[in-house]
């Protein structure tokens, strides 16, 4: 197995073009486990840890609503939690549920995207928060909306010569929530997970489920339903407590968006049930928070 260690992004892209079979590695929290268990023996590893520009983030268009944070694919979860929690609340919440402190010091959103596991913790918030994945190759750079990124179980929209260089996440002061169910109170892989993001400027709600379908996916019908409810009742300008019937219907639609399986972590029926509960609760927390901010 070749171990390729580029010092610059240009070098990395050139190597990836030459060796499309090379597996990129940053924190190694996923790739190394697969190597250690002999589940995977790629012909080459492409180490991205020496590339400084992948390990930084910057704000474009200001730090207020309307701006975007571009997070290099090598920025570890710990830094997202510490440095970006005020601007990207959903992503920071999801990052806090990843593994242990040691794993959060090493693991990256870039890695989460590269693995594209349906159980990856950050996917639902990236979907609900309208994030975009930046992919680069020697041919150029393109932006892939998160909604178009996940193609199947551990499959994503990258071309073989492309690397994930960053994720672009819209800045928001509006409430976002993330919750995941696991059968342990910390350091647990998702049985199912859910993210909700309020977008008051566009009078929209984002909602997405994880670990409950072949890919992470948006709960579009739930989004449509709730967005329409809130807008028609003029709730964005003068928020009132949400009716139980609205929360319940939102939960049902979220559960309907899922297409889970029975596996060792949980039954399909439980996953659907739990998603509806998580959807009701997280919506409630986000909406209360929004109501307090507005009034």
């Amino acid at each position: 197995m070749d171990f390729l260690r580029p010092d610059t992004l240009a070098e990395a892209l050139a190597l990836k073009a030459q060796r499309p079979d090379a597996v990129p590695i940053a924190g190694g929290t996923d790739v190394m486990v697969e190597l250690n268990f002999d589940h995977r023996r790629p012909a080459a590893l492409l180490d991205l840890t020496r590339i400084a520009e992948l390990r930084s983030w910057d704000s474009a268009g200001g730090n207020g609503d309307g701006g975007t944070v571009r997070i290099g694919s090598g920025v570890p979860y710990t830094r997202i939690i510490d440095e970006l929690g005020d601007r990207l609340p959903g992503l920071a919440m999801a990052s806090r549920t990843v593994g242990s402190p040691q794993i959060r010091n090493r693991g990256t959103v870039g890695g989460n995207l590269g693995a594209a596991s349906p159980a990856g913790d950050t996917h639902p918030v990236l979907l609900a928060g309208d994030a975009t994945v930046e992919a680069a190759s020697t041919r150029g750079t393109r932006l892939i909306p998160a909604t178009e990124f996940y193609l199947g179980v551990k499959r994503h929209a990258l071309e073989p010569d492309e690397l994930i260089t960053a994720v672009h996440v819209p800045v928001t002061r509006a409430p976002q929530q993330f919750a995941k169910v696991g059968t342990r109170n910390a350091m647990v892989i998702a049985v199912c997970s859910f993210a909700v993001a309020l977008h008051p400027a566009r009078q929209r709600v984002g909602a997405a489920v994880g670990s409950a379908a072949p890919t992470p996916r948006r709960a579009s019908a739930a989004e449509e339903f709730l967005s329409a409810e809130l807008t028609s009742a003029n709730q964005w300008e003068s928020p009132k407590p949400l009716l139980d019937s609205v929360k319940r219907r939102f939960g049902e639609l979220v559960a309907e968006a899922a297409n889970p399986i029975d596996d060792v972590r949980g039954s399909a029926a439980y996953r659907k049930h739990a998603l509806s509960v998580l959807a009701r609760r997280t919506l409630d927390w986000a909406w209360r928070d929004y109501s307090e901010k507005v009034t």
Binding site: R96, F178, K180, V181, N185, A186
Partner: peptide, 14 residues
């Protein structure tokens, strides 16, 4: 940390 579900943020008492 004191809640069922722990740091995965599944309940605030509900």
């Amino acid at each position: 940390r004191d809640m069922p579900g722990g740091v995965s943020n599944t309940t605030h008492g509900e």
